[in-house]
């Protein structure tokens, strides 16, 4: 269970999130939609522990104060962020990176670290399911990967790290329809009663493939409307304009859960 209460975030004095409230119960998939610049990516990054933001408010997750934890501890406790722009790390092989990450998480959970052999077996199996060739293990992390390959690499990491809360930040951006389907299949396979997901997207297209339990609309730093899947379809028809309009009329926001 993730509970966000009155979250305010700004960067260099510029307000980005302005009193955001959100709850995501275990096992549910929630979509967050909103126009560009509404604060979607900032929310994802703040939840994952990126530094450099001025943050106030409360975020409780799994019974702990999420905001008090450094980024790596959040990851080890099972929070996973699939980056909108996965970072290239030239000089570090994907294999080394994935194994370091998997073992860091396993150590934290008190599980036995995977030796090279076990790790390779697992990673190769997962790579097959997301349709990545083994060659990617020996290339530098994300370096020279196409947009689709980078996103698959994110889903691969998610499968390996078995998170409790996965946040997918615009995972559909820059993907053609085939790549989108493969990525969505990867995500759907990971849906389970123990795992919550937040799917951040600008377009409703992704939600045809990853069907959410709830849909929230973020506008100017706040959730302005929540609903079920129908809300996403309505947004597609009417755009974001009408909600912004409503927000202007009713500055405290409506429809928060």
């Amino acid at each position: 269970m993730l509970k966000i209460k009155d979250l305010h975030v700004s960067v260099e004095g510029r307000k980005i999130l302005d009193g955001l409230d959100l709850e995501v119960p275990s096992g549910e998939v929630h979509a967050i939609m909103g126009p560009n610049g509404s604060g979607k990516s900032t929310l994802a990054q703040v939840l994952a522990g990126r530094e450099g933001f001025e943050v106030s408010g409360a975020v409780e997750w799994d019974g702990v104060d999420l905001l008090s934890l450094p980024a790596e501890e959040r990851a080890r406790r099972g929070l996973f962020l699939a980056f909108q722009y996965p970072v290239e790390i030239p000089g570090v092989s994907n294999a080394y990176f994935l194994r370091s990450a998997v073992n860091a998480v396993r150590r934290y959970r008190g599980e036995k670290e995977l030796d090279a052999m076990d790790f390779l077996k697992r990673v190769k199996a997962e790579m097959q399911t997301v349709g990545m060739s083994e060659e990617f293990l020996y290339r530098s992390v994300n370096e020279g990967f196409s947009g689709g390959e980078k996103k698959r690499n994110e889903v691969l990491q998610m499968a390996l790290l078995e998170p409790k809360l996965a946040i997918l930040d615009e995972t559909d951006s820059g993907l053609d329809i085939d790549a989108l389907r493969i990525v969505a299949d990867g995500v759907n396979r990971l849906r389970s009663p123990e795992r919550s997901m937040i799917v951040i997207t600008h377009y409703q297209r992704l939600l045809d493939y990853i069907v959410p339990d709830r849909v929230h609309v973020l506008s100017r730093g706040r959730i302005v409307r929540s609903g079920d899947r129908e809300l996403a379809l309505e947004l597609e028809k009417r755009g974001y304009g009408w909600l912004e309009e409503e927000r202007r009329k009713e500055p405290r926001g409506v429809g928060q859960r």
Partner: peptide, 25 residues
Amino acid sequence: GLFYLRSRGLDEQHARNLLVYAFAA
């Protein structure tokens, strides 16, 4: 890069060293 590594569970010092090494590599 540092945030990416940490968000995958690597501790900060290890992530830093890794990036220094990657720079050299």
